[in-house]
Write a protein that binds this DNA or RNA. Sequence first.
DNA 1: CATGAATGAGCTTTCATTCAT
DNA 2: TATGAATGAAAGCTCATTCAT
Lengths: 220, 220, 220, 220
Amino acid sequence: MKYSSPRFDRLDEEKKQRIIRAAIDEFANLGFEAANINKIARKAHISVGSLYKYFKSKKDLFLYVIQLSSDLIEEELRAVNEAPFMSVESKIEKVLRIILRTNRQQANLIRLYLELTSSSNNDMTKLLSFNLETFSSQCYRQILANGQATGEVRADIDPAMAAFHLDNIFLALQYSYVGGYLYERYRIYVKEGIDSIENDEFVIAETMKFLQGALLNAKD
Amino acid sequence: MKYSSPRFDRLDEEKKQRIIRAAIDEFANLGFEAANINKIARKAHISVGSLYKYFKSKKDLFLYVIQLSSDLIEEELRAVNEAPFMSVESKIEKVLRIILRTNRQQANLIRLYLELTSSSNNDMTKLLSFNLETFSSQCYRQILANGQATGEVRADIDPAMAAFHLDNIFLALQYSYVGGYLYERYRIYVKEGIDSIENDEFVIAETMKFLQGALLNAKD
Amino acid sequence: MKYSSPRFDRLDEEKKQRIIRAAIDEFANLGFEAANINKIARKAHISVGSLYKYFKSKKDLFLYVIQLSSDLIEEELRAVNEAPFMSVESKIEKVLRIILRTNRQQANLIRLYLELTSSSNNDMTKLLSFNLETFSSQCYRQILANGQATGEVRADIDPAMAAFHLDNIFLALQYSYVGGYLYERYRIYVKEGIDSIENDEFVIAETMKFLQGALLNAKD
Amino acid sequence: MKYSSPRFDRLDEEKKQRIIRAAIDEFANLGFEAANINKIARKAHISVGSLYKYFKSKKDLFLYVIQLSSDLIEEELRAVNEAPFMSVESKIEKVLRIILRTNRQQANLIRLYLELTSSSNNDMTKLLSFNLETFSSQCYRQILANGQATGEVRADIDPAMAAFHLDNIFLALQYSYVGGYLYERYRIYVKEGIDSIENDEFVIAETMKFLQGALLNAKD
DNA sequence: CATGAATGAGCTTTCATTCAT
DNA sequence: TATGAATGAAAGCTCATTCAT
């Protein structure tokens, strides 16, 4: 749960960020196995020796940056969730827009997530999933349950399963944007380019139609 | 596109299966990078030398087993797609049931796919995604487009994007069953165990409700 | 001394030649270590198994083709040596012309020799040098000693050492024609291209001037 | 052109020499292909890992020691070439004496050269020949051309070709001293042992006679 | 006799981790 | 505390040789 050493925590912010950025970059682009600790140290302009004083192994460094990036995502989600006077539909669209923006600005973070997702390291996954997913699952479930109370959301669906499917749609969109296999797959499904702004609006419109039908009651 | 040597193709079925199983097992559980060719050979009770006569590199062996498993899935999908006199709804449910069954019987194959999904090996992904996804994307798009013609499927959605979302739901379900991070995530979303048969029916029912709303016109 | 098995000797000429050519080609171009027995078998359109029935090891095959090619060269030399009524100068020029011709026609054989020359395999070299060099050394020594008797050749030189130097000049020319390091070195020494016929005549003229001065008495 | 890493350059002299000696020893005795990097590391009492930090590949280590030995030879040659008030004859004899001395003191270096000479590695040879031969070719050509100006050297010969032949004689002598095939060949040509001092003087005398006749004008 | 699949030791190279300075 | 040189186990891959068919 605590992956960094006190010595790392005491470092000045600039140095910490350098290390974090270097690690995320390497892990996101190469994957856990192919990532190279010595290269991370070099990119961060510190020595391997120091890196090993800050994190006791390659795995710990990986877990640290994963944990970290989850916190960032959690924050954005929290803001949406707690917004008052917002319809379920608006909230969903808001999250969608956040996701598409994050995809471009923090592609490496998403890649890191994707990497984690397929990780076979069983000892990591249990712990991590608990930390990272508990919040978003509760968040989505709550939005839907509240929506059922107000009549916005279909009454006949299980909020937990629906939240799961909702997040699946979000996840798939995220992963499809950051390159690699799922990016190619996306292009096969949706011929047009992925990089244009107009396309973003098309994706949002179609995804909203899909989710409205799946989750919401007709609007009068 | 042809990843195995003729020498491998000529092998008797039992030996071929031994090798394929050993490779899938190793790749599915460790990932491409961490998988060990020498261990695969040992598990398959053949020599490394032989393995390298059958497949000219680690990558080729990986690509071979990926390709292979895609063929299996394609076959099932084809049967559903070509079934006459079947409603869109029934077809979707059929695929869903196939997926849940496959998850249990061929967990390693699914794990292999998941592994591929996060692969950063850019030269592989383009090729593979084309081989593996072209069929299913066309298949789903066709089902939906036909459904729009018969009035079963909502007229206001883009069949390509809808097919993409549909497959995303399927994919997420698959990956959530085979362990690792996404399995833990699933358990967080849907508290009850994953392994009971009753649960399967619950998942199917809820997923069908979700997809009906998302894709289909009301039935009268 | 006998590097091939009786079974090989009994083979029909065409098959023998195929094997010999394949072996010379491989050894000449890759060197002993890098040469690949399996590739030689493939090039010769026979099985490795057979190759190992014909020659009991890679080394034996190498020694066999070396031995063989020496016989070819010896034959040409013998003809020159035994020519009656020929001046020492003419004989030397004759050999020179043979060498330049051989360089083009049997480049692989020369390469093979060059390969042998640098061989560190001490157990091979003693034996081989005896087989291959005894004849040419005697041949040149005899030409020079006879020349001293007739007054053509300088009386003040040791025929053995002179024969050695003479052969060194020949050897260097040979090796410089067949590519690799010595070819590049030759080009650095003698800027003009190596491949033109006119150049051949230039090389012969200059080499003859050099050898005449070194070995022969002024002609009147 | 720079085959070693800065890290290697910074090493203390003793360690550098240990590594260089180990490498020269291995390459000279086994040849490039058969040489074993692990064995070199062990002989030098360092780890393979370190060796690979000092030289980024087996080839680079090979190129480094070749380059190194060429520098040594070049230095000696330069001294002779620049000596003032020395007749062409004296210069040639000086080089000859250097060669015979080097043969005993640096046999492994010469062996390394010989190994290179027969290398089929075409990408290395071009580069190396240029580095190693350009100097000596210019050096010999200059000596001869100057000699033609002073009347010491025959006016009727091409200095470039003559320099080439001169170096060939030197090269052959070198290679004949360091063992292997050419050593055996030398013994066949010149029966007496190679190892006695008197023999050195005999070789020098005979070689000088040969070269005087080939290159120089009669001394009045 | 011929075949060619099978073998596995052994090679070059990488990289997580340690530790003397 | 920071450094970065050193380590050496372990990986992918090759190929001379054997042997069942």
